Simulated assay, not measured.
Amino acid sequence: MLVDHFPLVGLRLTTPRLELRLPTPEELADLADEAAEGIHDPAVMPFLVPWTDRPPADVARGVILHHWLRLGGWTPQSWSLNLTVFSEGRVVGLQTIGASDFAVTRTVSTGSWLGRRHQGQGIGTEMRAAVLDLAFTGLGADEALSGAFDHNATSYAVSRKLGYADDGTQRHAVGGKLGIERRLRLTRDGWERHRKVPVSIEGLTPCLPLLGAG
């Protein structure tokens, strides 16, 4: 079975409303469709790499290729786990958690996107809480990093709600324009004080060596 060779396909995170896991091929197609329908105001770019600034068919194909690229380049020293987010069995978005040299740094970073029709319902907070539980409870992380451009008030609000603290700013060129990123850092203490979403983790133990935590 595939899970015997690549146990991450058996990893599941569940919250009161959501399930996060690697998708089947057809579910990956649904995720691509969700992205192609739009995930933010076209007038404002929330991503450092402007991957959504393309025709819908190219956006959809990019989601699929990026998913395969991350899995194909996987090593315990450098990994990025793109978990599809399901609400009531329906694909609603993507939640990423990644790390470099986790065995030494004990640090993860996160990123995400959510289909526009699913925004404003608290799903973004709940799916981030799921991977933070994976990081701190499951992997024994010491800290988690995130960031958002200064115009992305929604992402910033989610981070602060979950206990992140400001960690400086960084200037980027995005589409030929200046973008100011507000960096954020969550310590284990901050996570424990703001932890409110119950999370269940299944299938983690065989994944630990692949995540640099075994």
Rank of each mutant, 00 (worst) to 15 (best):
D4S: 15
D4A: 15
D4C: 08
H5C: 07
P7V: 03
G10N: 04
P25K: 11
D33C: 08
D33G: 13
D33A: 14
E37L: 12
G38Q: 12
G38I: 13
G38L: 13
G38F: 13
I39L: 13
H40Y: 11
P42G: 11
M45A: 04
M45P: 00
V49C: 06
P50V: 07
T52E: 13
R54G: 01
P55Q: 09
A57H: 14
A57T: 13
V59F: 12
R61M: 08
V63R: 00
H67D: 13
W68I: 01
R70Y: 02
L71V: 13
G73E: 12
P76M: 09
S78P: 00
S78V: 03
W79A: 02
L81V: 05
N82Y: 00
F86M: 05
F86P: 06
G89L: 04
R90I: 07
V91P: 06
G93P: 01
L94P: 00
L94R: 01
Q95W: 01
I97D: 00
I97Y: 00
A103E: 12
G115D: 03
R117H: 13
R117M: 09
H118D: 14
Q121G: 11
I123F: 14
G124M: 08
E126C: 07
M127W: 01
L132N: 06
G140Y: 08
D142R: 14
E143W: 07
A144F: 05
L145M: 15
F149C: 08
H151I: 07
N152Q: 08
A153M: 10
A157K: 02
S159N: 12
R160P: 08
L162V: 06
L162T: 06
A165E: 13
Q170C: 02
L178Y: 05
L178H: 10
R182P: 02
D189A: 15
W191S: 02
W191Q: 02
E192D: 12
K196M: 10
V199H: 11
G203P: 08
L204N: 12
L208R: 15
G212Y: 10
G212C: 09
G212F: 11
A213T: 05
G214S: 08
